[in-house]
Design a protein around this nucleic acid. Structure first.
Lengths: 212, 212
DNA sequence: CACTATACGGAGTGATGGTTCCGATTGTCA
DNA sequence: TGACAATCGGAACCATCACTCCGTATAGTG
């Protein structure tokens, strides 16, 4: 629990990208610009896009960068939560859906899309030494838990085979979305996601297998 | 074509890690030591292990490093072919096997093992800018072709569903083996490979789905 | 065993990138 | 509107890293 206590009576301040309690208008604008620029820079320039370049794209000096994020790692952490939070929401919604069967599969397809958008950031995180399973642990655990809940409900509804767990699903989804196939061959990528989803459905006798 | 002409009548010199035609004994030893050290360094220190560190682990000066490999990229290329060549062999053997059905699946399991050993190198290649689909293109294309042949024979033998191609198989195998699940959770990883293989078998009516 | 071509080691170089510092600028409140 | 405090910009700093150079050591040969 990083937040100590007494959140200063400004509960839902900025949903955009949770900044501190009371930033000056330009500061807030700059912070958002930096986040957007970083997103673009990592996508375009690869996992180790320089800070100077990110600042340049945000039309901001490096000084401003380091006032908003004490270190490059801090920026990455912020980007991670910005990406993962919506996924957690989606997973929770799917777990609460009253048609759990189809909900998981649409969830998985949505996660596939968002995870592959997340890839450049994940690569940057990996390249910068800090490993996700220590730093972002809390966040990614929450995602796993939410997905697990959705899977469980789908199993209860008989829409999913029982002999695969979150670990396997997460591993395969993660692997697929972090691979460069997602960016390079969208068509093949979607085929793979579909195959994966098909593979999660319970094996029914008499299912016609191959399409012509 | 970097080699001009007149290879000095020493055709099959070194199979270990194709060095030049006639190196002095210590030079040859050092080259091998560097390759081994690099393997270890990339595994331990991550994709951008410094050249100095590789040389140190090989108990060799940086000068020696650069005499054996004109550039870090050259080292990476050498490592790539060193990894991929045996896989090509294995794939060809599988394609020539007289039991194509089971041969593909053991091939895939072996490839899974060797691909995950290859991962640190692949990451280093990716991190160093040069992308595999241009530089190592020739080599990886040969691997793809060999695997394709094996798949085709398996399909002819009726051991594999017809509606997936090399692209899908390569994408999923690559994704799975390049993900960190292989290193972090070997058990889960093997489960996933098994699931993938199962998914490639033709869908037979009446197959009992979930194990208890 | 002596001699020479070849290989060795590691200090030095230039470039790149993360981080700091401080004078100039600008938003905000009285 | 005026003044203060917070923010801005970017030059400067330091560490890291790929790569070069050159004096020294050694393998291979007659």
């Amino acid at each position: 629990m990083p937040e100590p206590l007494v959140p200063p009576a400004v509960p839902p301040a900025a949903a955009a990208a949770d900044a501190g309690p009371h930033l000056r208008a330009d500061a807030r604008r700059n912070r958002a610009a930096i986040l957007a620029a970083a997103e673009e820079a990592f996508s375009t320039l690869g996992p180790d896009a320089p800070v100077d370049e990110i600042a340049r794209r945000a039309r901001v000096g490096v000084g401003t960068f380091y006032r908003n994020f004490p270190t490059k790692e801090a920026l990455l952490r912020a980007m991670v939560v910005a990406h993962i939070e919506p996924m957690v929401e989606a997973a929770r919604a799917a777990a609460a859906d009253d048609q759990p069967g189809e909900a998981v599969f649409t969830l998985l397809r949505n996660l596939a899309r968002e995870l592959s958008a997340f890839r450049p950031v994940a690569d940057a995180v990996a390249a910068s030494g800090m490993d996700v399973h220590a730093k972002g642990g809390a966040t990614s655990d929450r995602l796993l838990a939410a997905v697990d809940a959705a899977l469980t409900r789908a199993k209860q509804a008989g829409a999913m085979r029982l002999d695969v767990g979150v670990d396997e699903v997460a591993a395969m989804m993660g692997a697929l979305c972090m691979s460069d196939i997602a960016a390079r061959e969208p068509a093949t990528f979607h085929r793979c996601v579909d195959v994966l989803c098909d593979g999660l459905r319970p094996v029914r006798a008499g299912t016609p297998g191959a399409r012509p």
